[in-house]
Computed example of a mutant assay.
Amino acid sequence: MAWQDTVEQTVTGLGFDLVDLERSAGGLLRVTIDWPWVPTEPGQSAPEERFVTVEDCEKITRQLQYLLEVENVDYRRLEVGSPGIDRPLKREIDYVRFEGQVVDITLKEPIGVTGADIAANRKKFRGTLERAADGVQWQIVWSDAPEPKPGQRVSKKRPPVPMQAMAFALNEVQQARLAPIVNFKGRRAPAVDMGDDGHAASNE
């Protein structure tokens, strides 16, 4: 079994979702976890959001340290944490969960000539994530018009800002993340960094 499968099975076996898994050249293994998300049925109220705690990260870390040693995985440091404000979107359910949010999308290939006022070599976009009209693909909606400056009065007679939309399939995406917009209503738990001494230290 590949070590990536070991990590995923361990995380999901303890009741969490594996959001992301990175291995750096310096020997760092970074594991990002979250509580599973379940879509609510129409008419039902959304359950209270659960946040990953330092204790959750420590529990995952202890189990992974043991299993990675059994699998003889070579690494220098293991870091387990919760998603930040720039959480990656990798699965279809991630897009469903964060529909309507502002996201940053990087395509694998330039968009090419579309007939719209978009540079053919453009690959990066920021806008609102929406389901496309076909109900299968996704689209990102944005405006390249400059936003009003703080305190600037906007006339009611001002014409609507022109919007642009780009549909895409998930296999065309190189990277997708929530746009790092600060939300002061909540705060994620810090990551837990297990150093060479085996003790946990939170990364603020």
Rank of each mutant, 00 (worst) to 15 (best):
A2Q: 12
Q4W: 12
D5F: 08
T6K: 06
V7W: 05
E8I: 08
Q9N: 15
Q9T: 14
L14K: 11
G15A: 10
F16E: 02
F16D: 01
V19E: 09
D20Q: 08
L21W: 09
E22F: 10
R23S: 13
G26N: 14
L28Q: 12
R30N: 09
W35M: 03
E41H: 11
P42H: 11
P42K: 07
G43H: 08
Q44E: 15
S45L: 15
S45G: 11
E48Q: 13
E49N: 02
V52Y: 02
V52T: 11
T53Y: 07
D56G: 05
K59R: 15
I60R: 01
T61M: 01
T61H: 07
Q65R: 15
Y66G: 00
V70S: 05
N72L: 10
N72T: 08
V73P: 01
D74H: 09
D74T: 13
R76Y: 14
L78N: 10
L78I: 12
E79W: 05
E79P: 00
V80A: 03
P83M: 06
R87A: 09
R91M: 12
I93C: 13
I93Q: 13
Y95T: 02
V96P: 00
R97V: 03
Q101W: 05
V102M: 13
V102C: 05
I105K: 01
P110L: 07
I111Q: 02
D117G: 00
I118W: 02
A120S: 13
N121W: 07
N121H: 11
N121R: 10
K123M: 14
R126L: 02
R126Q: 15
G127L: 09
E130P: 04
R131Q: 14
D134Q: 03
D134F: 03
D134V: 06
G135L: 06
V136N: 11
W138I: 00
Q139H: 03
Q139C: 12
Q139R: 15
V141L: 06
S143N: 07
D144A: 12
A145E: 14
E147H: 12
E147I: 02
E147K: 15
P148G: 08
G151I: 05
G151T: 10
Q152M: 10
V154N: 06
S155N: 11
K157C: 02
P159G: 09
P160N: 04
A167R: 08
F168R: 04
A169N: 12
L170M: 13
L170G: 01
N171Q: 14
Q175N: 12
Q175C: 04
L178F: 04
A179R: 06
A179M: 09
P180T: 06
I181P: 00
F184R: 01
G186V: 14
R188P: 03
P190R: 05
G195K: 06
G195Y: 04
D197M: 08
H199Q: 15
A200R: 07
S202I: 13
